[in-house]
């Protein structure tokens, strides 16, 4: 049986364009899954993971078009890239309800540093993961490739 985390990671690979190793490598997968559990109504995370388990029959495009899953899915991408949760739209809340955790917030000091946006930029999180004196004088790593 595939674990919840594996389902979440499999989906996240499709959403972010980063490999399973890179996503697990952020150290944030459990915490992000927990964040989803805190924000979405009971049972909804598992329902979501079940939906995404239907990939590739069910396409990401279809998920993103879904009024229910689209906003959640976009938020998961922002979660991986920025380490922050974005409050779901009012129209979504009107249908599914609101949890206190559904607010604009950085998940944790660690999630901020784990954001994939810094990797994508060929950079490092501002204020953390320093690169050493003079590292800024050379061409950026990933971005130049």
């Amino acid at each position: 049986m595939t674990s919840r985390r594996d389902l979440f990671i499999d989906l996240s690979v499709e959403l972010t364009g980063y490999s399973r190793v890179q996503l697990l490598g952020t150290g944030m997968s459990e915490r992000y899954l927990q964040a989803l559990d805190e924000v979405l109504p009971d049972g909804m995370v598992d329902e979501f993971l079940a939906t995404s388990a239907a990939l590739p029959t069910m396409t990401i495009d279809a998920i993103l078009r879904s009024e229910t899953w689209g906003p959640v899915t976009r938020n998961i991408m922002i979660l991986w890239y920025c380490g922050r949760w974005t409050a779901l739209p009012d129209s979504w809340r009107a249908v599914h309800g609101t949890r206190p955790a559904d607010s604009n917030h950085v998940i944790s000091a660690d999630s901020y540093q784990a954001g994939l946006q810094w990797v994508a930029a060929g950079a490092h999180p501002a204020g953390a993961r320093q690169q050493g004196f003079g590292a800024w004088t050379v061409a950026p790593e990933e971005a130049a490739s």
Partner: peptide, 25 residues
């Protein structure tokens, strides 16, 4: 930039990653 790519441009997956790589840099 991430929010714009995801919410306004509808990007995901490798296209999202590539867009961010290309623009942020």
């Amino acid at each position: 930039t991430v929010t714009d790519a995801v919410a306004n441009r509808g990007l995901f997956g490798t296209a999202l990653r590539e867009h961010l790589r290309s623009t942020l840099s």
